[in-house]
Design a protein around this nucleic acid. Structure first.
Lengths: 208, 208
DNA sequence: CGGTCCCTCAGCCTTTTGGCTGATACGGCT
DNA sequence: AGCCGTATCAGCCAAAAGGCTGAGGGACCG
């Protein structure tokens, strides 16, 4: 039986080495290449056509993970893409999933979890770390807590530290409207000050 | 000649595996133990007395890296402690250094850089990644912009979204004092609202 | 011992923010 | 046609935050 070919994508050499070492213990898996950036990943997918691509989302300057996923998908190849990252931000999860990722693992996952995810991925099954799954679940149960596009836009600017007046100017709306949006955002995030909203947004929504 | 004994401390198994694999290629180094938390690290230092402790600063709940460094120092042992982390935040660098760290490496460092740092550390030399060095340099040139310990502490809580009243309660100081500290922090960060301070802190100081 | 930081606190005043209520308008869905 | 979600705006009021000045005590250092 032929082994599962894997491409590792992460900008940190230690992480790649670690994954390579871990996967090396599994007789049915083989790391065929490593990339340290999105562009490199794209190239190596073309060259090696790996069965699975395991990749980090945050990768220094240049193409980010989400973009890389989309581009790999566009190659029409049948690679299963697994996200392997440190943070479980709502925004990242959603974007990764609808960019075509097959699974979402956190870096503190147990080895068995990683192996299972890779094997599952080639069989077309989705696997994700429990914290990730529960976040998705959370969103499905409480659609009321999902920000509207306009609110997300405002929140994003909010994390830059702008005042209501500045927010209004940037979005071409009155300060009154800004306040209305903010009130809705606060309610959805479960906070009651802009400071807490920023903190929550950056930590939970991954807006950095 | 006896090999340099190393203790790895990182909450991510992949990172530990990666480091172990990398250090395994060096004949003069030997990983004698791995810890996934600060507490565990402390215990293993006692047991193995490694020559070098390579450790991450961010380690889930419980004791953080800085605290762990201090505790290891307090054991009076002569371990050389190397910080090996993802972010080069000003605050972390300063705190790590004056907690007794011998060097400060970023996770995207080249293997040779890591090896050199470990060898240097046992010989009492400090080694740090170029970005880290330049930050320290920057701080030496503009000492006016360096936050005092108390200010850093306050800023850290600020990024959790607390109000002045809450900050005061947490730090056992009056709201007036909180406002004084905030004013100083704003001046040093070059902002004039708490929202902007939080944004700057998280992006520039790496406080998340 | 004087100078310099750092941390602490107070009062006063202005600006900003947040909570509330209510209103208009547009698009889509039923 | 009605309903609902979204986006827009207004006014009012209370609370929070920010700017300013001044000030005392403790630690460290030359």
């Amino acid at each position: 039986m032929s082994r599962i070919t894997v491409l590792l994508v992460d900008d940190h050499l230690v992480v790649r080495s670690g994954l390579r070492a871990l996967l090396g213990t599994q007789p049915d898996m083989e790391v065929v290449a490593e990339a340290s950036s999105g562009g490199e990943a794209l190239e190596l997918v073309r060259v090696h056509s790996p069965a699975v691509v395991v990749m980090d989302l945050a990768m220094g300057p240049g193409m980010d993970g989400i973009e890389a996923i989309r581009r790999i998908r566009d190659l029409d190849s049948r690679q299963a893409i697994l996200v392997f990252t440190t943070y479980d931000s709502d925004a990242d999860i959603v974007r990764a999933v609808d960019s075509g990722a097959m699974g979402y693992l956190l870096k503190d996952a147990a080895p068995e979890e990683i192996f299972a995810a890779i094997r599952g991925a080639v069989q077309g099954r989705s696997v994700m770390s429990p914290p990730v799954a529960s976040r998705l679940f959370q969103q499905l149960r409480n659609p009321d807590e999902v920000l509207t596009p306009r609110e997300a836009e405002l929140l994003s600017l909010l994390t830059e530290g702008l005042s209501n007046r500045e927010l209004g100017r940037r979005l071409f709306i009155s300060e009154a409207t800004v306040k209305t949006h903010l009130a809705h955002i606060y309610a959805k995030l479960g906070v009651d000050t802009r400071a807490a909203a920023i903190a929550t947004a950056i930590r939970r929504e991954g807006m950095r």
